[in-house]
């Protein structure tokens, strides 16, 4: 087989690789690896409790080849702030400091600590691995869980819309915000590298499908990301110094049904193949995104 063009220009250093225990097709494992390899050896990872931490850091064999620091579920951004303060005070560095957490850690319990880190202006990149629920504890709803999705705590389907974290991050006045998914390795890595080259707080929001929680086949992880983008449900853009730029245009717009139908968490929205009202509501969310970002 010829070497895939797909991997051309992709950094592969195996800084996050061997010995992790993620499920097959885990979007977060893939994303974490792309982030670490893009950042390079001179990097410190401050990771929140969650799937990533649990599958990558069992004593005595963690999967990290860069320094890894974990303490709690809700404080990765504050811990990273402390690491940064220490480097400044001790006159050490420069070093890349990347705080990392899941959507629950980012949008809910760690929200305050991230807001504090942004507002204080620490030279830290925060990466959110968004799998749209609390996966580590068994697929409970978070405030990034999309409308209509079934989780173990929204058995009838989630009734709320997803919190818009990239915009909230940007409204802190931080110099760089970006969204990415694990279907475009180069784009994701470029954004991480671009972020790290900028002084101050940065936020990169990565859609990272969870085959177990979303109910899709592991080999579809990348395909699910593509559908999330092409339906308009997960817009890809950057916000540089407060201005939205580099919006990814959708080549051919796809109805949300195609995205929903490959995932078990939306199965209840189709009765004998017929889409329910909620599907129309989700299409409306996609349309609003398409209009807002001119996708």
């Amino acid at each position: 087989m010829e070497k895939s063009k797909y991997l051309e220009g992709v950094e592969k250093k195996d800084l996050f690789a061997h010995g992790h225990r993620a499920c097959g097709g885990c979007g977060q494992a893939l994303a974490a690896r792309l982030v670490a390899d893009a950042a390079g050896e001179n990097t410190i990872a401050c990771v929140a409790t969650g799937c990533l931490e649990v599958f990558s850091s069992p004593y005595p064999d963690p999967a990290w080849r860069i320094p890894f620091l974990h303490s709690l579920f809700e404080n990765a951004a504050a811990v990273a702030s402390g690491v940064e303060a220490a480097y400044k005070a001790l006159g050490k560095g420069p070093v890349n400091i990347i705080a990392q957490g899941g959507d629950g850690s980012t949008a809910d319990i760690g929200f305050q600590s991230i807001s504090g880190m942004f507002e204080r202006g620490h030279n830290v990149l925060y990466v959110c691995y968004d799998n749209e629920a609390y996966m580590n504890t068994g697929v409970q709803r978070s405030s990034f869980t999309p409308y209509g999705a079934r989780t173990t705590t929204t058995p009838m389907g989630n009734r709320t819309r997803k919190k818009n974290m990239p915009m909230i991050a940007a409204d802190h006045g931080i110099p760089y915000v970006a969204t990415a998914t694990v279907d475009d390795f180069r784009d994701l890595q470029k954004k991480v590298q671009k972020a790290l080259a900028i002084e101050g707080p940065k936020y990169v929001h990565i859609l990272a499908p969870c085959p177990l929680g979303w109910g899709h086949h592991g080999e579809l992880t990348v395909e699910v990301c593509r559908l999330a983008k092409d339906t308009g449900l997960f817009p890809i853009y950057e916000i540089v110094d407060g201005k939205i730029t580099n919006v990814r245009k959708i080549p051919v717009k796809v109805p949300v049904e195609e995205y929903l139908k490959v995932q078990g968490r939306f199965k209840h929205l189709f009765k004998r193949g017929v889409p329910s009202e909620e599907v129309a509501e989700i299409q409306e969310i996609a349309n609003q995104n398409i209009e807002r970002f001119n996708l």
Binding site: C46, N75, G82, V83, A86, L90
Partner: peptide
């Protein structure tokens, strides 16, 4: 959390 991170560094 900040002093934790700082001390760990």
């Amino acid at each position: 959390s900040v002093v934790l991170g700082a001390s760990a560094a």
